[in-house]
Design a protein around this nucleic acid. Sequence first.
DNA 1: CACTTGACGAGCT
DNA 2: TAGCTCGCCAAGT
Length: 109
Amino acid sequence: MKAAQQFYEQVYEIVALIPKGRVTTYGAIAKALGTARSSRMVGTALIAAHRPDLTLPIHRVVNRQGLLTGQNHYTSPTMQQLLAADGIDVIEDQVQDFQQVFWDPLSEL
DNA sequence: CACTTGACGAGCT
DNA sequence: TAGCTCGCCAAGT
């Protein structure tokens, strides 16, 4: 079992816990895992999260500005649509009231 | 097998 | 305050 693979599982674990109607950031997850500077790896982990056996609300993860930087990786229901279904307003790839819907795994977990 | 790219973010200038 | 550079390291070419 590779260390990186375990890192992925940690990411998935947190993503799975994001409450409906809330979002978190790559950096927040990375920090929660103790690797604050590996925020990029969180994004990579989410790409790998496309495995058929994983059904995670990865659309609830956005960058620090509340921007839907992963839009390019979505085809069918866009992140915006999925977020809208969660009750989150998104305009021009920007989450509205980001600070209010932000969910910090460190303080909330 | 080596090199480049990238769902990011913090730190410095 | 805004912009640039550096760290991180897996995955793709």
